[in-house]
Design a protein around this nucleic acid. Structure first.
Lengths: 362, 362
DNA sequence: AAATTTAACTAAAACGTTTTCGTAATATTT
DNA sequence: AAATATTACGAAAACGTTTTAGTTAAATTT
């Protein structure tokens, strides 16, 4: 039975419709179309791509049939054939975290526009989870990685899982939490400058006793920020005073440490490496009757929800997360699509921006 | 050349190592191992699975070789073979959103524990994006969907994309933002009860003029919350007063609307369907010299960061997002793994919890 | 010693594509 | 009319697995 006339085609379609009816209509494949239309699989494949090789009658027939049955090629089969998944893997330490989701939004936006999907894994700040997730995804599920190192990994200083992945030729872009030891593309903000500018502003505003609230140094960004803090002081002839540093051993808030610190040290300005530490401190000093920003000013890293809605609003150093995500995705997808063999890596450094609010004078 | 002795094996390994050296070591496949060891692909496959069919010499040889070369099966090939991807698709309206990320964390946690990866797409509250993302993922990339409807979809009231997916036999679990018209599993919180309890508390505290700040009714959760608000009033003999409802046309904050509302209406309690509206209102009434909670009390839906860090803290109705995510993932993965043909759907309703803070008296 | 069982393997199909290389049949050139 | 070019298609390999159904050769049973 060879079908060339439209009539025969219509008959066949209707016939198949009835024959094939079933409560759940499984996805149709090239093979089904080929069998039903009495042509070969290759012909169907080419016809759907509007190949010049195929006669226009056949093309019409195939395309109409495919449309009627809502044929969509199977992504997995295409991935296997092309050795390209059009998925990118994102590994971040935490998902309930304003900055990371902001970056993620940028990644997703760019990736989606380029036809890529994003697979997210959360390392939960754990080295082991980071390794497991990476290995899982590296076995064909993704074309490249975008990630921020977990604190566990930064503490352990072990980057073999990243090396393995890059050695397999899988592109990797690190953002925000990076490490010098890793050879790959990176997108970071100039954390040092952010801190430097904040402290400089405090000094300009006449502040003398400027405190720094930070976490342990193994977090790369905290280290950078502390460096900026010191440099700004030194550039302005203010002596660095270890006493004015409050270092939290973990991300957990310890109210006692805050109380202890503010009771014992007289400070007139506070730079905090994150919002939470800043907000807690602000609430504490307010409860003690101090006025913000008159008696004590605050600036916090990461311009998140809390900074915006605190009262007074917290002057913040914006990290431009969304832009960071877009850039990371752009670099990655570029590498994926033009798999360049020469190993040249870029580090894009974004400039932070000071968003002034009520917690500082202006 | 047939290799049975260990010596010969070791020789071969070293030989291959040198022969195969290249700057980027591409992933090794069963075929490579088979060729290198002079056995068939099926033998390698079985040997790696410790099949009884294969002699122990061969098994040892194959396993050692695989380990040495760090063989890991290709996920894509396995997916194609099994028609199972071990990926689940999550589509949410927004990622920079505390509640959604909380749910996502629950999903990710459960899914990961079960060996699944999560592909996230953001609908950006848009119907079109929701449809595009779904269709993209439905072509083989995922085993099932977990999603919250975009507001665009709820407004349009068009669920054909969801129907198509379920008709193809792809399991779907809806959470939080659901629709009665869709036949699928659902996980929601009892929004009506949350509002009811909040208003009841206000009444018990002696409040008379209780306002509701809400969004347009096409958002399912807002509708439910408004219903709870009305029911609590009615059950306590308080007349429903349209004047005490402030309805925002979008999620964008309009300070004028807030000012207008609080200038013109005398209210002593406010229930808000989200944090942002509540926080803004609190700041406004505070700026007008009103005392919270003495003069005016506040309760807000969703126990997020803002509620916790506002001053005073905002009494909130907790949605238990993480638990919601875990349950959604559990239901979905159960459906995926035991593809049950009978179409029975469950709706799990979680009970909200009132978290009391400084914005209400106690 | 012949028949049967067992052990240890292999060939080949399948999953759903894409793509290269043929190959008929027809059309065009000499 | 014979040689060549063109059109329209199909067969088969490939991607990397898993799995079914053989197939040898050796071991065991009769």
């Amino acid at each position: 039975m060879c079908l060339n006339s439209t009539k025969a085609f219509v008959f066949l379609v209707v016939y198949s419709l009835e024959k094939k009816y079933s409560p759940l209509k499984r996805k149709i494949t090239l093979k089904h179309i080929a069998r039903e239309l009495g042509v070969s699989i290759s012909t169907v494949s080419k016809a759907l791509k509007n190949s010049e090789e195929i006669g226009s009658d056949t093309k019409e027939k195939v395309q109409a049939f495919a449309k009627l049955y809502n044929y969509k090629p199977n992504n997995i089969a295409i991935s296997l054939k092309n050795k390209r998944t059009k998925n990118i893997g994102v590994i971040i330490p935490d998902i309930v975290h304003h900055f990371f989701t902001t970056v993620f939004r940028g990644i997703e936006k760019y990736a989606n526009a380029k036809g890529y999907n994003v697979i997210v894994c959360v390392s939960d700040e754990s080295f082991d989870k980071e390794v497991i997730n990476m290995e899982l995804l590296a076995n064909g599920s993704i074309d490249g990685f975008i990630m921020a190192l977990s604190s566990g990994t930064q503490l352990k200083n072990d980057y073999n899982h990243l090396k393995e992945v890059t050695e397999q030729g899988i592109p990797l872009v690190l953002f925000d939490r990076v490490a010098d030891d890793i050879q790959c593309d990176k997108v970071i903000i100039n954390d040092k400058k952010g801190a430097y500018d904040a402290v400089t502003k405090f000094i300009k505003d006449g502040r003398k006793r400027i405190a720094l609230i930070t976490s342990e140094d193994y977090i790369s960004v905290s280290r950078e920020r502390a460096a900026g803090y010191r440099e700004a002081l030194s550039d302005n002839g203010i002596e660095y005073n270890e006493d004015l540093i409050l270092k939290f051993p973990s991300m957990e808030i310890n109210e006692n440490l805050i109380e202890d610190f503010f009771e014992r040290k007289k400070v007139d300005a506070v730079l905090s490496v994150n919002e939470i530490f800043a907000i807690h401190s602000m609430r504490y000093v307010q409860s003690k009757g101090l006025k913000i920003p008159e008696d004590i000013s605050f600036i916090g890293f990461t311009d998140g929800l809390l900074s915006k809605y605190a009262s007074p609003g917290l002057t913040a150093i914006a990290q431009h997360g969304e832009q960071m995500g877009e850039i990371a995705a752009e670099i990655l997808i570029d590498k994926v699509e033009n798999d360049i063999e020469e190993e040249t890596y870029v580090t894009r450094v974004l400039e932070p921006t000071l968003i002034e609010r009520g917690s500082t004078v202006n």
